[in-house]
Amino acid sequence: MKIRRFGVRSFFASVGFLSVLACCIIAGGKLSWGNFIFQFHKLVGEATRTPHLSFEDILITIKTSRKNHEGRINLLLDTWLKPALPQVYLITDELDNVTQEKTGDHLIGTSCGSTYHRDHLCCKTGAEFDVFFAKNQKWWCHFDDDNYVNTARLVALLDNFNSRESFYVGKRSRYPGEYMDYKGHPYVFGTGGAGYCISCVLAQLMAPKVSEGSFVKTCQESNAADDCSIGYIVNYLLKLPLTESQLMHSSPYYGPETPEIYKEDLPEQVSFHHGINLGLFKNETFEPLFNKTEDPTGFYSLHCILHPEDKICSSI
């Protein structure tokens, strides 16, 4: 059976390659190399898709800063991050011994700078891409150090898509009808504040614009922030869509109108932002399990709703 399965895949790969090559010849060579690769991987992907995704197929990177290690990173380690750590890498501007001991080799230092200057943030995002390219996973997902990630639902979300095709999954940053603009040409992007995910095939198409330090130059070229520049590459340059997810949530103060979510629907959501207890949900007031002094972000309360068995929830 294994020999037969390999033969079928090889057959479809060959047919896919020849089909796309034929289309390129018929089109008089007008099919770009990027589109050639995209179409080829799409055909092969349809023939060879793995039926079920696991968390081990996803690489998560978190952009952070030395000044946030003690507060934000410790909060994440107390809640969702620690059990997920084998698949997560933290990209920072300066290492410290305490956080490095807690995270092992999953804390990666850079010389990117520690401010919110565009070049510093884009430098870190480029470093995130380089980690992904080195690890050879099916999916790369970016989150910020003020995100809570429901990893089980992240796997379920991405299992709807084929990593061997080009997918860019996230929350659209602006209202329908509103776009970012590059020299009069509109494009959309997924807000980094909610997190976004990119398939391995799409990441390879993006590589010339994002890897080995090139992403800073791309951000300067687009004259936009790091998450906007991801949309600039995918939606404007590659002409590929953002696959919008209503399960990924950014700050309640930014982006399109916040969704109506009931408390019982919390386990179905993929990501949350600091301030979950400050108005993210309109239909039902979020009732913290800890007081605001103990839990100003709402993450401990959220974590204990999703994982009441965790030892930090035993005192409730």
Rank of each mutant, 00 (worst) to 15 (best):
T48Q: 11
T48P: 02
P51V: 13
L53N: 03
F55H: 12
F55P: 01
F55Q: 11
F55K: 13
E56K: 14
D57K: 08
D57L: 06
D57W: 10
I58H: 02
T61H: 01
I62L: 11
I62T: 14
K63G: 11
T64D: 09
T64L: 04
T64P: 00
T64A: 08
S65I: 06
R66S: 14
N68R: 13
N68Q: 13
N68D: 15
H69L: 02
R72C: 13
L75V: 07
L76T: 01
L76D: 09
D78M: 14
D78P: 01
K82N: 10
A84R: 00
P86M: 06
P86R: 04
Q87E: 12
Q87D: 10
Q87C: 12
Y89L: 10
L90A: 06
I91L: 13
I91V: 14
E94Q: 15
L95N: 13
N97F: 08
V98K: 15
V98E: 15
T99N: 03
T99S: 14
T99K: 01
Q100A: 05
Q100Y: 04
E101T: 13
T103W: 00
G104Q: 11
D105T: 07
L107D: 00
I108W: 03
G109E: 15
C112V: 07
S114P: 01
T115D: 07
Y116F: 15
Y116K: 09
H117C: 05
R118D: 11
D119F: 01
H120E: 12
L121D: 02
K124P: 03
K124S: 07
G126F: 02
A127T: 00
F129E: 00
D130I: 03
F133P: 00
A134I: 04
K135T: 06
N136T: 09
Q137R: 15
K138D: 13
W139A: 00
C141P: 00
F143Q: 03
F143E: 02
D144G: 15
D146A: 06
N147W: 01
Y148A: 01
V149I: 14
N150A: 03
N150T: 04
T151Q: 12
R153F: 03
R153M: 13
R153C: 13
L154W: 02
V155I: 15
L157Q: 09
L157E: 14
N160M: 09
N160C: 10
F161N: 03
N162A: 06
S163T: 06
S163W: 08
R164Q: 14
S166F: 04
K171S: 07
S173G: 14
S173I: 09
S173Q: 10
R174S: 12
R174N: 11
Y175C: 06
Y175A: 15
P176I: 07
P176M: 05
G177K: 09
E178K: 12
Y179Q: 08
M180K: 12
M180E: 15
D181S: 11
Y182E: 04
K183M: 12
G184C: 06
P186L: 08
Y187V: 02
V188D: 02
